[in-house]
Design a protein around this nucleic acid. Structure first.
Lengths: 214, 214
DNA sequence: TAGATTGTTAATCGATTAACAATC
DNA sequence: TAGATTGTTAATCGATTAACAATC
């Protein structure tokens, strides 16, 4: 299959989340405008994405929920699945562990790491915590290819380097420090501050509009 | 000032985060290519954003870090600041509370809410937890205009409705359920699953490329 | 059938980048 | 000065949407 736009990949993930919800509610077919409503996008965009992945719906009933879930799986999952590590077992690390595991997913968190020896050996939502010094050995042993970084900013760079040397393939960086890493490692960064400042900015303008109505 | 593109707003927030870091390291001036490197974008884009907000650097020294921080503040902050509530005091809620407070920011988390009475009255990082039934009264009393949702998915919709009725202006939704709310309320949604699936997808292709080299 | 839907191309829109003048 | 930088317009690129044919 030819390469899909990055935005389409993102939406496929969201379609799937929604379709799984539909299925659990007993919904077997869905229209493009229903999916669109849920995700705050247009029906055309949904249909175009579906076209890009080579699926077809039925003219009257819409799209088959179960089939689409399966098809999206063949695109964004790997067959054998992937092992994931969470680095940093603070509040955020624990939130991620309990949120992602317990999901029916090809992605599995198989280890967590923390510099605090107190936490070593403990289990969070079924995931064992190792001391950071075991990072390299465990990544090798457990065949971990993806890391989620939730450590304090000032050690992010250093740990990223160790991860890369250990052969990790992708990093999801939740620390406030942007990482500078080789381009063959896929990097996704997210900072909550940016999101909340965006909301604040936009609700600021909303308020100003209110004022002008008075 | 004419309206700035949404993407520029996002980057302004990231520039500021970076500039503050520079300042703390004693760096007084910065070049566009330095900022660009940190944020994985191009120097032209940095200069264009800076042009859009009407700032000018000096030809040899680059941009004045402190001045730029101040200017970005006038654009994305409000003078009086904004009060924020976190709804749901699980791991993620607590992570957000401790992450955002303690930052020098115009955004202040002034209350947290949870349905678990055990948590009522407790403090997390200096923020008091209220029972969910006090949501409306506290929003009014504390003049809260922004809410961060970290409750379980199945109550997200219901709480969003209460928030809107209570007069909230913007919502940052971390639950896996997309919200269906009136368009005058600004809504930002983020699902970790999408981020991690994106990383998995891209590091999948990276691996396939590796295979083909062998 | 009429109406609602899908599938797809072409047009539009918006965001990024290339090119280059200006200047220290 | 030459080289490095900023500031800005025009061109390009990519993503979204409008338009519409097809069909149940």
């Amino acid at each position: 299959m030819k390469k899909l736009p990055d935005k389409t990949i993102e939406r496929l993930s969201m379609y799937r989340r929604n379709l799984i919800l539909c299925l659990s509610q007993g919904k077997k077919y869905i229209y493009s405008h229903e999916l669109a409503n849920d995700l705050h996008i247009t029906p055309v965009q949904v249909r175009r994405d579906i076209m890009l992945i080579g699926y077809s719906g039925t003219l009257r009933k819409g799209y088959d929920v179960e089939e689409m879930i399966k098809l999206i799986g063949t695109i964004i999952d790997t067959e054998q699945g992937k092992n994931v590590a969470v680095i940093g077992v603070g509040n955020l690390g624990r939130a991620i562990i309990s949120y992602i595991n317990g999901k029916r997913s090809k992605l599995k968190i198989v280890a967590a790491f923390d510099s605090d020896s107190e936490k070593s050996g403990k289990l969070y939502a079924g995931v064992r915590v190792f001391h950071l010094k075991e990072l390299e050995t465990q990544i090798l042993e457990k065949n971990i290819s993806i890391a989620i970084l939730t450590v304090p900013g000032d050690v992010a760079e250093e740990i990223a380097e160790r991860l890369i040397t250990a052969g990790i393939k992708g990093i999801l960086n939740y620390t406030p420090r942007p990482l500078n890493i080789p381009s063959h490692i896929y990097l996704e960064e997210y900072d909550m501050i940016t999101s909340i400042e965006k909301v604040a900015y936009h609700s600021k303008s909303a308020e100003e509009m209110n004022y002008s109505y008075r």
